[in-house]
């Protein structure tokens, strides 16, 4: 075990990059998921089309291809992105497209009677969204969003392929230097596993918090 422990300091710098990518990517993905998910439900067709195009393109092409395209392709248009920003941008765009479908599904799954009650009570569309749809949609969106957050964490490993020194990148460097392949990979996988468990735990906490005092079953 001590053999494992002495490797940790060298990996810590990479861990920080991975955490930054996860948080930055999650923030961007969150914003894009709501824009995309609501956009796809918009009654105004240009908005709907842009949302659909965004969702289909970023779900339909591979995350790694997107990463390479932004990192190697964009400079040819004179746009140079630092690896970190390219990483956060691609993670956010990619995971956000999957998140948009979760948001759309979460809102769509709410019983039609809810919006009819809102009309009968003369709520504006914004009030209906803010006070009735959003709180109910959040509870449905959170569990699949938690799974998606773990997918995001796993996807961050790809940035090691555009020279960003995240956890995986540091691990590979360390392996080349020390040739302690087994230990390094074991440690690497364990750290990712631990991070994933931590994220899952946090999401479950928020979920319980949101649901305290009420649940959807049997009510309409």
């Amino acid at each position: 075990m001590s053999a494992l422990l002495d490797l940790i300091p060298s990996l810590l710098g990479g861990l920080w990059v991975t955490v930054q990518l996860t948080l930055g990517g999650a923030l961007l993905a969150c914003i894009l998921a709501w824009l995309g998910g609501l956009g796809k439900r918009s009654g105004f067709w240009p908005v709907r089309w842009v949302a659909i195009a965004y969702i289909e393109v970023f779900r339909g092409t591979s995350a790694l291809v997107q990463l390479f395209w932004f990192f190697y392709g964009l400079p040819l248009f004179g746009i140079h992105l630092a690896p970190m920003w390219a990483g956060i941008l691609v993670l956010g765009l990619n995971i956000g497209a999957y998140g948009a479908e979760i948001v759309r599904g979460g809102i769509q799954s709410i019983d039609k009677g809810q919006s009819e009650a809102c009309t009968a009570l003369n709520l504006t569309p914004f009030q209906q969204f803010r006070f009735v749809l959003l709180p109910q949609a959040l509870v449905r969106i959170l569990p699949p969003a938690g799974n998606l957050l773990i997918e995001l964490l796993k996807t961050t490993a790809l940035v090691s392929l555009i020279t960003l020194s995240d956890l995986t990148f540091k691990g590979m460097i360390l392996r080349a230097e020390t040739l302690r392949t087994a230990e390094i990979f074991a440690l690497l996988l364990l750290i990712y596993f631990g991070l994933a468990q931590l994220l899952a735990f946090l999401v479950r906490r928020i979920e319980l918090r949101l649901k305290r005092g009420w649940h959807m079953e049997g009510t309409s």
Partner: peptide, 10 residues
């Protein structure tokens, strides 16, 4: 007033 109540569950 609705047949299926349509109360806000939250």
């Amino acid at each position: 007033v609705f047949q299926h109540f349509n109360l806000f569950p939250h």
